[in-house]
Design a protein around this nucleic acid. Sequence first.
RNA 1: GGGACCGUAGUUCAACCGGUUAGAGCACCGCCCUGUCACGGCGGAAGUUGCGGGUUCGAAUCCCGUCGGUCCCGCCA
Length: 606
Amino acid sequence: MRSNCCGELRKENISSTVQLCGWVDRCRDHGGVIFIDLRDSSGTVQITVDPDQGNELFAIAESLRNETVVQVSGQVRARPAEASNQKIDTGDIEVLAKDLKVLNHVKGNLPFTVSIHDEESVREETRLKHRYLDLRRDKLSKNLRIRHKTIQAARNFLEKEGFIEIETPILTKSTPEGARDYLVPSRVSGGDWFALPQSPQLFKQLLMIGGMEKYYQVARCFRDEDLRADRQPEFTQLDIEMSFMEQEEIIAMNEKLIVSIWKTIKGIDLPTPFPRITWHESMERYGTDRPDIRYGIEICDVSKIFKNIGFKVFSNAISSGGSVKCITIPKGNSAISNVRIKPGGDIFSEAQKMGAGGLAFIRVRESNEIDTIGAIKDNLNIDQINALIKQTNAKEGDLLLFGAGDTKIVNRTLDRIRQFLAMELKYLPSQESINYWGFIWVVDFPMFDFNIDENRWEALHHPFCAPNNKDLGETPDEWQNRLPKARAQAYDLVLNGLELGGGSIRIHDAALQKQVLETIGLSTKEAHEQFGFLLDSLDMGAPPHGGIAFGLDRIVMLLTGSESIRETIAFPKTQQARCLMTEAPSEVSKQQMKEIHVASTWTNPK
RNA sequence: GGGACCGUAGUUCAACCGGUUAGAGCACCGCCCUGUCACGGCGGAAGUUGCGGGUUCGAAUCCCGUCGGUCCCGCCA
């Protein structure tokens, strides 16, 4: 149908006869001469329609509207010097139409403008309903191409490293821990259910036990949990697993993978090795296990200074087992008004959102004088002030913001305030700077976290992470006691405060695996019901292995500078996990439900 | 489960503190225009202000409910 693509035509093509297909991006009808910007996936080129080429041709050109699909035959020619357009790649030439055929019309109004010149933001609801039109627009079209190139870069790299791509089941077994499963009833085995995989975790381990040694997959994962800008009910992981490699080797290899992706997509050489931080240190300094390391404002634990202070908010926090911590905002006195950090202010509200009861502050003035609310000022002596200023390294003009209470909430709050103010006060490097990319490996995660509500330990990553041998003790007798407090051989790759991926060395010893499952409260019987196949396999020559999984949607989101992973997915769902285009999910017939032995208990609340 | 913001013409927005016939750009329709490139000019059509109820002499505007979208908390091994 076509001899060339629109966007590829250049001076070199002058005088050649071409046939093009595409969409009318825009028309400029001058009455005597008509210009058509013809667009295909490669770009746009100007088609010139001259009345000399015949009335029929001209009449068709006059009838064209935006997004009409046309086929044009014509000759490439140089534009008159004064009419060349350096703003577009094909601006030196134009195609003089000899024949023009409408392949498809547009009837009625389009829901929104498609043209590459139109950057007007359309309501997302409308874009999602007519996603096929949105895909035609510049931004999504580019994003999906970057997504493709990202996957290709990963495939190329992994191919060279000797990995093979293997698919794992989509219909699989429900897992007890973790997110809610999407369930699929079995017609053949009445009353039984499949689950869609939350990740290929167990299968990739079994592939290692199956001797594949180096596996990867662009794997679709499903989790029935509430959504966010960076969470969809179905998302894609770049899933990798390998045998006979230790944590350091795996980290080094994956770092090279990331470097090669950034080189391919951004054309930049990321400095290596990426910095490392232990989970513990990250929590101390940033209050989170996914720190944005591109700016300072680190968290300072000042509990010791305020242990015996008369200001009850602080002293009570400490005596009840919590902490008092603070962040120092350089020059914060002039940048941030009291209105914003007192009740009702935006910064105060951010703190409140994270569960903080309040947001205490101290302003450092000339010669270490301080300025704060009376309740704090009246209860602080000069030694405490000096200790505070020394520990926080605060200077005249700086603002100290405090969190006091349960340590988890204090950390969470100060992390949030830190990020909120970094954005607001423009501490972030520009997108063009190499420093924009704040990669960091977070290592030495704890194996478990104690769930107070359920009074039990739960796996921080998942229950297949291997513990650090140093924390285990010499003999299996010690495992039971030592395991809960052990560090895991687990690692997360964090970029700009977002978790890009995470992995671990897996347990390849059946006894240790049973002990870990027991620690999270699974009896031997339950463990066998849920993971019998894995436990069995570990006793049949399971190699040491480990791996990682990257959130592909998030990687592409960062590479494209998007605000949401929806901008990297061809057909995403809304926050209510609905597809506005197909209107899925939807009702099914009674007959369908009968066949799969399912009855609905849903009653409309009305 | 909870909090915040949003919903006005095909679309993007406007319409103060409730007050004539709800306006404008783009798109659409008609006419004019031979070098534009977000072409230009003249004219036109286009609205159940998401939906339902309430307050009021009077509601896009205020209140309640509801539906949908977004952001966030909880949740997401």
